[in-house]
């Protein structure tokens, strides 16, 4: 029984990381209706940034957040201006390929600049563990988990209570109407995209002490983020948070009790089933389905 709870706790901690990565993706999709296939690559860039700050300037990955997040925000603005804006009204196929192109560029530039080597940071706390009764929790994973909660709450508050947040929500609900109400849609898109990439910047810095970075690291997390986002309901922050935890737990449980080499298959199948039978996502709001299907 203790073993089972340990599996559960490990899964939730893993899920915290997934949640953190997925929140940005769901934000971008919810507001811009664009599936950003380069999302994982922004994570990769954030991780490299955090790594080099550590390596060259000896800045702790957690401290590096204050540099990585604005940098990613800026990168988001640039990518939005150069690539996303011209295709915002293009058919979905074109949008998919533009972001696929973006991901190819990022991935291979990273390979070109930094080689295929696996880079890690070494910190004093990275293998520290916290005892929760008989269960063990890794300290950096715990931190990532807690920050995922804070970030989701922060976004929740931001969208509910600030002018920009309300404007973003109104665009998500009805683009034309929002435009008529005098909201600068183009600017809001830029903000949404940049917020999404900044969010993944947080994830990148938090992930660095637990994981390692290499040019294709984004694909592993990117696909999982899509699963989480669909599961949680496209554009739904709380959904993405819970969806991340759920995927983490599913992965952990199926790895131990079914077979480690099938754990990804299990959650992909769940993903397909959700897509087919509940496209609004498990935690989707009513009406989101319409959005999700269009």
């Amino acid at each position: 029984m203790i073993e089972f709870f340990q599996v559960l706790v490990s899964g939730i901690m893993l899920g915290g990381i997934y949640s953190l990565i997925s929140i940005g993706l769901t934000l971008i999709f919810g507001i811009m209706r664009i599936l950003n296939f380069a999302h994982g690559e922004y994570l990769m860039i954030a991780m490299y940034l955090s790594f080099w700050l550590f390596k060259l300037l000896n800045i702790d990955p957690y401290v590096s957040i204050i540099i990585v997040v604005p940098a990613l925000f800026l990168l988001g603005i640039i990518s939005q201006k150069l690539v996303i804006k011209p295709i915002i009204n293009a058919p979905p196929t074109m949008q998919i390929f533009a972001t696929v192109g973006l991901s190819l560029v990022f991935q291979n530039l990273a390979l070109f600049l930094w080689k295929a080597d696996y880079r890690t940071v070494k910190t004093s706390y990275q293998t520290a563990t916290i005892h929760l009764g008989p269960m063990l929790v890794s300290f950096p994973r715990m931190v990532a988990f807690l920050i995922a909660i804070i970030v989701s709450l922060g976004f929740f508050y931001f969208l509910k209570n600030t002018y920009t947040g309300k404007a973003l929500r109104s665009i998500a609900q009805n683009r034309e109407a929002a435009m008529l109400m005098g909201i600068d849609v183009s600017k809001m898109y830029m903000i949404a995209f940049a917020l999404g990439t900044a969010c993944v910047g947080v994830a990148g810095a938090l992930l660095m002490p637990v994981y390692y970075v290499f040019p294709t690291v984004g694909t592993y997390f990117g696909v999982t983020a899509f699963v989480v986002v669909v599961l949680g309901g496209m554009g739904n922050m709380t959904g993405a948070f819970l969806g991340g935890l759920l995927i983490g737990v599913i992965e952990s449980i199926s790895g131990v009790y079914i077979d480690p080499s099938l754990k990804e298959a299990v959650y992909f199948i769940i993903f397909i089933l959700v897509l087919l039978f509940k496209p609004s996502g498990l935690f989707g709001l009513r009406g989101a389905e319409e959005v999700g299907l269009k």
């Binding site: 599936l35 998919i96 899509f226 099938l262 992909f268 897509l275």
Partner: peptide, 23 residues
């Protein structure tokens, strides 16, 4: 499923097939 959602499902299926063949 429409547009990007169809695409997502094909990615997922592609991955499932690959994982099963490996398994």
């Amino acid at each position: 499923l429409r547009g990007p959602f169809f695409t997502l499902s094909t990615i997922a299926f592609g991955e499932v097939v690959r994982l099963l063949v490996s398994y």
